[in-house]
Design a protein around this nucleic acid. Structure first.
Ligand SMILES: [Mn+2]
Ligand SMILES: [Mn+2]
Ligand SMILES: [Zn+2]
Ligand SMILES: [Zn+2]
Lengths: 146, 146
DNA sequence: TTAAAAATGAAAATGATATTCAGAAAGTAA
DNA sequence: TTACTTTCTGAATATCATTTTCATTTTTAA
């Protein structure tokens, strides 16, 4: 959190941006969560305590966080771009429950290695990847079998 | 191709749909390609020979093909939904060149196995997945190094 | 202070996708 | 064939997330 704020401030400075209370609030709220927020969702959350904040400001802040490398953009195919704080270099991928919307994060170094091998076979240089498994989570399965 | 047409006809019949020359043409063009078409792209291609065809008709046909299981919807993050013919059960994933837009298809059974293991660990049942590697293809790398 | 630059937020624009609707075409049963 | 019903088509319009515009406010450096 401290670390991400420092990275962001450095990036903002480099870009010649000014610091505002709105952006600080959005950043704090964003970093303080473990969720995968859409602009709309984060906007509504912040709005509860700060009704004066604008949707566009939240939107611009999230895009900026991604540019500065402290957030990643996600797309789980529900028509809304989502954002999550990028903490350090700990990459992870996602299991997405299409029933309840819950997200499980996973890491599998063997998969990461294999995909590098695949890319190497084609002389392809990977910059980023997306690996999402869609299905039904344990909880939803349990509920359905009642 | 024959096979996909048969599957589609069966599905259309089940749904009580009528057969039209437009849909037949769209289907033939779609199946006859190896591309990953967006609605717009397929529309433009068909339009060259058949200027009377409507965009909405192409769009509805592609969605229908996906419903009937002869096409998959893809999203490479460029803001356009793409479609590709689903030939048999041969699943594959994609390498996407962010420089020239070219697509390389790959299959890696070990990755497929590993992702099943990951899901099992969480009691998660996978229905579908998406695994895309974004970066620079060999060709673009070669061009850049000139 | 003052001036310049950036930020905000409401409103409007954009652009891909989806829907509406009136007329056309296809299927069905004499 | 004809009459009738249902589906289809294509142009236009609607929808909806995202992005941009612009008048005003705020920040920052001089
Ligand atoms: Mn995550
Ligand atoms: Mn493919
Ligand atoms: Zn669930
Ligand atoms: Zn390329």
């Amino acid at each position: 959190m401290r670390e991400e704020i420092a990275i962001f401030n450095e990036c903002a400075k480099r870009k010649g941006l000014k610091s505002t209370s709105q952006r600080a609030l959005i950043l704090k709220t964003f970093l303080g969560s473990t969720s995968h927020y859409s602009t709309e969702e984060l906007y509504l959350k912040i709005r509860k305590n700060n009704p004066k904040i604008g949707y566009a400001t939240v939107h611009r802040a999230l895009k900026l966080f991604a540019e500065c490398g402290i957030a990643t953009e996600l797309d789980f195919g529900d028509g809304q771009t989502r954002f999550e704080p990028l903490r350090g270099d700990q990459h992870h991928d996602h299991l997405v429950c299409t029933s309840c919307g819950s997200i499980i994060e996973f890491t599998e170094p063997k998969i990461e290695e294999l995909q590098e091998l695949v890319a190497a076979k084609y002389g392809f240089k990977i910059n980023r990847h997306r690996h999402e498994l869609y299905g039904i989570c344990a909880n939803c399965t349990a509920i359905a079998s009642n």
